[in-house]
Design a protein around this nucleic acid. Sequence first.
RNA 1: CGGGGUGUGGCGCAGUUGGCAGCGCGCGUCGUUCGGGACGACGAGGUCGGAAGUUCGAGUCUUCUCACCCCGACCA
Length: 490
Amino acid sequence: MAKGLTSRKENYSQWYNDLVIKADLAENSAVRGCMVIKPYGYAIWEKMQAVLDKMFKDTGHSNAYFPLFIPKSFLSREADHVEGFAKECAVVTHYRLKSSPGGGIEVDETAKLEEELIIRPTSETIIWSTYKNWIQSYRDLPLLINQWANVVRWEMRTRLFLRTAEFLWQEGHTAHATKDEAIEETLKILDIYSGFAENWMAMPVIKGIKTENERFAGAVETYSIEALMQDGKALQSGTSHFLGQNFSKAFDVTFLDNKGKLEHVWASSWGVSTRLMGALIMAHSDDRGLVLPPRLAPIQVVIVPIYKKAEELSVISSEVEIIRQDLIASGISVKYDDRDTYKPGWKFAEYELKGVPVRLAVGSRDIDNRTVEVARRDTLEKKSYPMDGIGETVKALLEEIQVNIFRKAQDFRSRNTVAADSYQEFKDIIESGGGFVLAHWDGTRETEERISQETKATIRCIPLDGEKVPGKCIVTGKPSSQRVLFAKAY
RNA sequence: CGGGGUGUGGCGCAGUUGGCAGCGCGCGUCGUUCGGGACGACGAGGUCGGAAGUUCGAGUCUUCUCACCCCGACCA
């Protein structure tokens, strides 16, 4: 176990907190509920951004930027929307400070804003008020916009990455001529999210529809991807909303169709946030530290020289430079850590804590044998390989690791996904370690709330894929068209 | 907003009936070490969260206050 890292078994939640701090991903800031994302953590986020951004661009979306501030009146235009967010909004009321008599500064009460500004908790309202001017004809559609931004939701309890008062995300906001097209967009993005989660984060997810209870405020239908964390709790990792005409009606966004008829446009919005960082951390990491999927690791390979004297180091370093070039030529990001201020053992532990997928150690023995010691983070196996062709060897290994950690996560999820056919069985599963539980539900809010109150488990989603076998609700015995996915959630 | 807890060098903590602010880690210099978190010697670093009070004397007692953490209700 890594120094100072609580084990998962001992206290999972503490393990997560320790890991975020010790792996140098983020820390708490002077502002309650807000985090400082440190360079190493931010580097991972930047990789995520780059991949997602390309996926959005490849599907025809463009980036833009809308204001941080939203006039208070905008928020109340859509009734459900305002109700959903009102309780967690930060409000700007003044625009000036003045020196206070007792020293320091205070709010200048004479500088009160005529209309207060809300710090965006999400941007539907400001964006739709803008779209009104952008859209007149069916020729202006579809409008496919994304923005990378920060948003603020004044959460009561926060945790680094998983729930912070301010977080970074992307929010896509699209406008379409038809309902079908908007739904198609909503689902297309859901596929992008699940593809990203599985192929890049190596984290299996379940795509589904949210129940009315869990639906985004202002949406007609909310879709999400749900991942299972190692403690048996579910983490909603991305959402895509079909907004119907709710916002176009609230902001009066209309267009003339090709028959000259005036219609309200159809909308979608979708987002993933820095919460993905939390998902990534919890999906794969162990008691030694982070385990990062090679495709998102800022450093894929670290090389550690083993030496006693300076002369030895210079021989090793020149050999390492050849190896490094070989790796770079294979498209691998490499760090050579030749710092003399830390010892090899320390470095080994450090890079394990930080989740670097592959570590190479090169010492005099290797120079003599023309070998490299290769250690993989996921299995902790160490093996010697010939120096020649090391680029290809490592490249293949990185791919193997990517696949292996995905499979591992997938196995974990299958082991922890069970069907329950009675309420008692359901309760037993939830109480003994949790996980995903597939059960029949009668589709009513009352039953959902009862289950949630009695067991703390909620309906994560109604899965889109998989069998649609009818049955009877585990609580009321009323008919159900398919099993839905329950879990305790983050 | 309820319940619990913590504020003392950068970090983690100790500090007894009130009596010279300490320990470990980290940090700096030097030397020996270096294939799984090395060791020795010397050294730097603190108005004890803040304010008021009690006292000859407060990290310690009293009152007020601020901040943060954990557990619940709300949430991506």
